[in-house]
Structure formats: structure tokens, C-alpha cells
């Protein structure tokens, strides 16, 4: 982690310790959530999209301001069939704009879907230095799973291979097809979690990636599944507040402002957004950052009450 990022984290940690959690709603004014609004919105997400659940996480990392059984939200084993990095290259090669959302795209997230519009956005980001990722690195780099490097540290398991007389009963065992199909090779799965960031007073998204044989992906490789506009800027690799290990996360510094914009657009159309729908709007926005990860944020119902 770069120094400025460390300093910022330390500062943020101190501020979080000495300030109380937000209790007054500023949802429409600032696009942020109070702790109780986060729990309300999370309850609604879990009831409408049952692949999401509340979890309590590591007991030692529990936040006192959140209910112990509702520390963060998670959905596991979410497929990601294609690399976002490839998809964008394909679109760009075809001379098209990157249109992130193709179902009921009504344009209100367009500024985040098009890479060309990013310059104006970018200036507003606090100076979080981007991670050093070699742009030319082959996306299909072979040691995709954790443990792929440090080969010399690991005893050679080939010595033991098939030494055991274990039975597999080939008649009734469905032996998986050889992974000659490119799609199978590329299918990754993700555990996506949403935590409450007390400093920014918004939800924060975390990604844990697995390769096609469900082995943990190095956090850096997760960046292949992030829209390339965000991969080196808003998506960083940090300690998860409730789980061990390093995980990729969409940095929440602009979440409030983006959510405020979305809310303003809705209100200008006469839709009064309700705070319990916050996470659906939020996840729709997050889809522009991780366009190929197929998590659930069903929007088959009204976002709020229409005021006229």
C-alpha cells in the first residue's frame, strides 16, 4: 500500500474512533446513510434479493454501532463469466461506447458507463495514488490462484500423486469435462460483501475472487474484473473490516456524491426515493464498476413513491 493511502487510513481510523456514527438522516441532501438507515436498507435487500444475507464476521472485528448479527451483507458464489478488461477492449475495438447496463438503461448512470466522460470525474477524487499494476501484464497470467508463486516453498505434490489407493467409482461419478472450453476456464466466482463505512457514511463494496476451481484469486487479478476506468483508481486492495486478508474494494470517497446525483435525477423525474431502496440504487451504480460480475440487485419494483 502506498504511503499516502496508509496515512489516509490512519487518519480515517482516528476520526472514526472519536466521532459518533451518523444518526440524523442526510440521505436526500448528501447521498449518505445513517447506521440505522444502512440496517433498514440491508434488511430490504435481504428480503427482496435472498441471495444476500447479513453476517456477523470475526467477533474481534465487530463494530459496536451495528447489531452483532448484522455487521455486513454478503452474497457468495456470484459468477463472472468474462473479464471486464476484455469486454471493454472488444467494445472499444468496435468503436462503441462502453454501455455498461443494457437492461432498462435509461441513461441516468451514463456518466459512469462511458470511459470518455471520466476526466471531469477524476479531478474530484482525493489523491489516492493508484496501485502499481503493470498495464502490459498478460491478463491470462498463469499463477492465477494464491499460492501460484513461491513454488519452491511448497513440497512437490507430484511425488505423492495417485500413490493412494482411493476409489472413485467411475461408473456413477460424473467426471468433469476437460477445461478445453474457454468459457469454463474464464468462469470465476466472487463473494461480494457490503460494509458500512463510518467515515464516509456510505456502504462500501468488497470483492473476494475465486478461479474456476474455486481457489482464492490474488487480489491483483480481481482488478481484471473491474471496469478499467476504476481498476487503478477507485478500486484498491485493502484490509476488510470484518474478514481476514486483503480484498479488493471500491473506495467509498465518491459514493455519497454519486448517490446524491442519482437521487437528484430521480427527484427531477418526480420520483421520491425511499431510503430502504438505497442499496438497490447503490448496487446498480456499482454494476458500472464491476460490469461482468452477475450479482443480484433486482429492480422489479418501484424505487420510491411518485410525488405527483
Amino acid at each position: 500500500m502506498v504511503l499516502s493511502q496508509r496515512l489516509h487510513e490512519a487518519f480515517k481510523g482516528t476520526v472514526e474512533k472519536i466521532t459518533g456514527p451518523r444518526t440524523v438522516s442526510a440521505f436526500k441532501e448528501k447521498g449518505v446513510l445513517s447506521v440505522s438507515e444502512f440496517v433498514t436498507a440491508g434488511d430490504n435487500l435481504v428480503s427482496k434479493c435472498p441471495t444476500w444475507s447479513w453476517e456477523s464476521g470475526e467477533p474481534s472485528k465487530r463494530k459496536p454501532y451495528l447489531p452483532s448479527e448484522k455487521q455486513y451483507l454478503i452474497t457468495r458464489n456470484v459468477p463472472c463469466l468474462r473479464r471486464a478488461a476484455f469486454v471493454e477492449e472488444e467494445y472499444e475495438a468496435a468503436g462503441m461506447e462502453v454501455l455498461i447496463d443494457n437492461e432498462d438503461n435509461d441513461g441516468w448512470l451514463a456518466t459512469h458507463g462511458k470511459p470518455k466522460d471520466r476526466s471531469s470525474e477524476e479531478e474530484n477524487f482525493p489523491s489516492i495514488e493508484s496501485l502499481e499494476i503493470n498495464k502490459n501484464k498478460s491478463v491470462k497470467s498463469s499463477p492465477s490462484q494464491v499460492g501460484g508463486e513461491d513454488e519452491d516453498d511448497i513440497p512437490d505434490m507430484a511425488d505423492y500423486e495417485e500413490a493412494d489407493n482411493i476409489e472413485i467409482d467411475p461408473g456413477t461419478y460424473l467426471v468433469a469435462h476437460e477445461p478445453d472450453d474457454d468459457n469454463i476456464l474464464r468462469t470465476r466466482t466472487y463473494d461480494i460483501s457490503i460494509t458500512y463505512d463510518k467515515y464516509y457514511q456510505t456502504p462500501r463494496v468488497w470483492l473476494t475472487g475465486y478461479d474456476e476451481s474455486r481457489m482464492l484469486l490474488q487480489a491483483e487479478l480481481v482488478l481484471e474484473d473491474v471496469s478499467q476506468d476504476h481498476a487503478r483508481k477507485t478500486v484498491t486492495i485493502e484490509d476488510h473490516p470484518h474478514l481476514p486478508g486483503k480484498h479488493a474494494s471500491v473506495h467509498p470517497c465518491r459514493h455519497g456524491a454519486v448517490m446524491k446525483k442519482i437521487i437528484d435525477v430521480l427527484m427531477s423525474r418526480g420520483v421520491e426515493p425511499e431510503v430502504d431502496k438505497y442499496l438497490f440504487l447503490f448496487l446498480k451504480f456499482v454494476a458500472s464498476v464491476i460490469p461482468t460480475i452477475e450479482y443480484d440487485y433486482t429492480m422489479d419494483f418501484d424505487l420510491g413513491s411518485t410525488s405527483n
Binding site: V146, G147, D150, M157, E161
Partner: peptide, 23 residues
């Protein structure tokens, strides 16, 4: 009765290994 069920690792009868030195 007889039982089966050892998980194959990419089609082979070998254990899996994960290194978490980084974290």
C-alpha cells in the same frame, strides 16, 4: 456399504494447496 467421495483436484487424485503468506 462401500463408499466413494474423495474430491478430485482438476481431475487428479491429489490434495490441494493454498499459500496465504501474503496475508
Amino acid at each position: 456399504p462401500n463408499a466413494v467421495g474423495w474430491e478430485l483436484n482438476k481431475g487428479r487424485k491429489v490434495p490441494r494447496c493454498i499459500s496465504l503468506a501474503k496475508s
